[in-house]
Amino acid sequence: MVQEKVHHCNILVMALFGSTATLSSGVLSGFQLFDKNMFDLFDFVSSNILLPVGGILICIFVSRKLGDKQVIDEASNSGALGNQSLLKVFLFTVRYFAPAAILLVLLNGLNIIRL
């Protein structure tokens, strides 16, 4: 019963946010927040903030929480594929290069730096 009420609340919140994005080219065209209409604001937040932050969190999860052994076991079918050396390069990239590159993308998207 409680889960059903939470589900209905989620639907209501999503409908309200979706409606504002839909109406931003019509009835709500004059309403702006941070110099953007609601559609542009949702686009900016999702593509310039949420996607890079999610990418960094995935890199942290794969490199720190899963660990080398589990990633190599999963991606090499427990050693059957023989791609362990390539996976070590992958792990190095996910651990060091990818978070730094994604951070640069995030900072560029927020107009903190220019690339």
Rank of each mutant, 00 (worst) to 15 (best):
K65M: 10
L103K: 09
V13E: 01
L86I: 14
I112M: 05
N108F: 08
L41G: 05
L66W: 12
G82E: 15
G82V: 13
V71W: 02
F92M: 06
P52A: 14
N37H: 05
A100M: 14
G55S: 06
K88R: 14
A101I: 15
I102P: 02
L91W: 09
L81P: 09
F92H: 08
S47F: 10
L33R: 06
V2I: 15
D73R: 05
S29G: 12
G79P: 11
A75T: 03
I72G: 00
Q70E: 12
I112N: 03
I60C: 06
S46P: 00
C9K: 06
I49D: 06
V6N: 13
K65V: 13
F97D: 01
G67D: 13
A101E: 07
S46M: 12
G55L: 08
A75Q: 11
L103W: 05
E74L: 15
S24R: 11
K36I: 15
L104H: 13
L104T: 10
K69T: 12
F97A: 01
I72E: 00
N77M: 08
R95Y: 03
C59Q: 03
G79M: 11
I112E: 03
V105F: 11
F61D: 07
A21K: 12
L16N: 00
I11T: 12
V45M: 09
N83Y: 05
I11R: 11
L16Y: 02
A80M: 02
L50C: 09
H7N: 10
V94R: 02
F44S: 08
L33G: 03
S19R: 00
L106G: 09
L86M: 14
L110S: 05
F31L: 07
N77D: 12
Q84H: 07
S25I: 00
S47H: 02
D43T: 03
A98N: 03
A15G: 00
N77P: 02
L106A: 14
A101S: 07
S19G: 15
N111W: 01
G82S: 11
V94Q: 06
N48H: 08
H8F: 02
L12A: 14
V89W: 13
L86D: 07
C9T: 12
F31Y: 11
F44E: 15
I113F: 03
V71Q: 08
N83A: 08
D43G: 01
F97T: 13
F34W: 10
A80Y: 13
A100L: 06
Q32A: 13
I11F: 09
E74A: 03
L91T: 02
V53K: 06
L28D: 07
S29E: 14
K36P: 01
V27C: 01
T22L: 10
N83Q: 02
I102A: 09
D35A: 02
N77S: 11
L66H: 09
L50S: 01
R114G: 10
Q32K: 15
V13K: 04
I56A: 06
V27P: 01
P52C: 04
R95E: 04
L81E: 12
G18V: 04
